[in-house]
């Protein structure tokens, strides 16, 4: 007997466990399908040999081990990259500390006294003081360049005297 699409659909719903009203013809077909499925199940049975199951179990262990290893490698690489980044940053900061920072026109310079608060007195105190003086002078030069002529001469005088003091200091410590 040949059923139409709708009839097959109702039978499929019934086979899937839904409550469906079936005609006698549909019920017969459903019973036939159930019998055929049972027959197929008995005929198509194929047991997996122990070797195949053993190989599959081994694949699981290999796959899991591989994943753990990959995760560990990624973690190690990430950690190494982070350490390298910190090192590079540190080196860059050290380089930057040793370089005089240009001061924007009009901004306040760091007075020597304030610098000395942060720097422990010791054997490098003299060169640091010199460096600070140098910075002050550089800042003053920049400020002078932006200053009207009338205000500039007292500052220039002050700078000249500072320069003299610096020369004296260098002579004493040479």
């Amino acid at each position: 007997m040949e059923l139409n699409e709708e009839q097959y659909e109702r039978i499929a719903q019934a086979l899937d466990g839904r409550q469906v009203e079936l005609t006698d013809e549909e019920r017969q077909t459903m019973a036939c399908i159930v019998r055929d499925e049972d027959w197929f199940g008995r005929t198509a049975h194929a047991a997996a040999p122990a070797r195949a199951m053993g190989k599959a179990a081994a694949s699981i262990r290999v796959a899991l081990h591989g994943r753990t290893r990959i995760v560990r490698i990624i973690a190690n690489v990430s950690a190494a990259a982070a350490i390298a980044a910190v090192l590079v940053l540190g080196i860059m900061m050290l380089i930057d500390l040793g370089r005089p920072v240009p001061v924007a026109p009009g901004s306040q310079g760091i007075p020597v006294a304030q610098l000395e608060k942060f720097i422990q007195p010791g054997e490098h105190q003299a060169p640091i003081k010199l460096l600070s003086m140098d910075l002050d002078r550089f800042e003053a030069d920049v400020a002078l360049m932006n200053m009207p002529e009338s205000q500039a001469s007292p500052v220039k005088n002050k700078l000249d005297s500072l320069e003299n003091e610096l020369d004296d200091f260098l002579l004493k410590n040479s």
Partner: peptide
């Protein structure tokens, strides 16, 4: 259907075909 234990609805979804078609194919095939 046999080894995977799929319902006909799941078979129809898997093969993107109407429910009735899925059962008709299985029936004729068997």
């Amino acid at each position: 259907r046999h080894f995977g234990g799929l319902s006909f609805k799941e078979i129809a979804d898997t093969f993107d075909c109407p429910l009735g078609t899925a059962l008709a194919k299985v029936h004729r095939g068997l």
